[in-house]
Amino acid sequence: MSELEWDFDSWVRTYDEDVEREDWIHADYEEVLKLVAERVGGTVVDIGCGTGNILCFLKCERYIGVEPSRGMRAKFKEKHGFEPLDGHFLSIPLLDGTADAVISTYTFHHVPDEEKEDAIKEMLRVLNPGGRIVIADVMFESEKEELRIGKEDGTLDEVLDEYFATVEGLKELCERLSLQCNFKRINRYVWIVEMLKPAQSLKRS
């Protein structure tokens, strides 16, 4: 992200209440967090961790939150007693091979399409060989499907205002990076994708 303007500082006061309202983006919110949490263990890095809601469901040896919003980091510390790292998808302040899993829930759509591959590469950098990336977010099977659903549901303006990934695009990305991947559709809008890093480290280009 050439310039991150998530502006979550102004949202932090109502964030936890807003996600519980289960609008079209956050439908099945807690179920999605549970499904992500059950897929990972060991050392888990959470990109765009917000106020740390997934900690209610995670069972891991070590958790490291990464969050660009100062307000969100402060709220996270208020809730959980420790503060996440200041970073984002394209700049994770951790050494190579730190994590067994990198997760992201409801945040990948803030990454512009042309920078999604770089974001995945940065997540792979901090993963141990054989580790996994688990992303849960609004996604669409294709750009055509994105337009169809947006028009049918009256959400087209909101859909086009974000950088929602497509399953087609992520499959192509995984093929380029030699990653195994699988997708699970949770509801009309939300998908979970798992990307597995080869047991042998990838060569950096």
Rank of each mutant, 00 (worst) to 15 (best):
Val134Leu: 04
Gly150Glu: 06
Arg176Gly: 10
Thr166Cys: 10
Ser201Trp: 03
Asn187His: 03
Ser201His: 01
Glu143Met: 14
Arg188Pro: 01
Trp191Cys: 00
Arg176Trp: 12
Val159Ala: 05
Val167Tyr: 11
Ile192His: 01
Asn128Gln: 11
Val190Ile: 02
Glu172Phe: 04
Gly154Met: 06
Glu146Phe: 06
Leu202Ile: 09
Val159Arg: 09
Leu127Gln: 06
Met123Trp: 02
Leu196Glu: 12
Val190Leu: 00
Met195Thr: 07
Lys144Pro: 03
Ile192Lys: 03
Gly130Leu: 03
Glu162Pro: 01
Asn128Asp: 07
Ile186Glu: 04
Glu141Asp: 15
Lys203Glu: 07
Ser142Met: 08
Met123Ser: 06
Ser178Asn: 15
Glu162Ile: 01
Leu127Asn: 06
Asp157Cys: 06
Cys181Gly: 11
Lys151Ser: 13
Val159Trp: 05
Arg176Asn: 15
Pro129Asn: 02
Phe164Glu: 02
Ile186Asp: 03
Ile135Trp: 04
Thr155Trp: 10
Met123Thr: 02
Met123Asn: 01
Glu158Gln: 13
Ile186Val: 12
Pro198Gln: 00
Leu177Asn: 12
Glu172Lys: 15
Lys197Gln: 02
Ile186Arg: 06
Leu147Ala: 12
Thr155Val: 13
Asn128Cys: 08
Val126Phe: 06
Leu124Val: 02
Leu160Glu: 11
Glu143His: 13
Leu147Trp: 10
Lys197Ala: 09
Lys197Thr: 02
Val134Thr: 05
Tyr163Gln: 03
Gly154Ala: 08
Leu173Cys: 08
Ile192Ala: 02
Val193Glu: 01
Pro129Ser: 05
Lys184Pro: 03
Val159Phe: 04
Ile192Tyr: 02
Ile135Asp: 06
Gly150Tyr: 05
Asp137Thr: 09
Gln180Phe: 15
Ile192Gly: 03
Leu179Lys: 12
Gly154Phe: 09
Val193Met: 11
Tyr163Glu: 06
Arg176Ser: 14
Val134Gln: 03
Tyr189Cys: 00
Glu152Gly: 05
Gly130Thr: 03
Lys171Gln: 14
Asp153Lys: 15
Cys174Glu: 06
Met195Tyr: 07
Gly150Ile: 05
Glu175Cys: 13
Lys144His: 11
Lys151Gln: 12
Gly131Glu: 05
Asp137Gly: 09
Val193Ile: 14
Tyr189Ser: 00
Glu141Lys: 13
Glu141Cys: 08
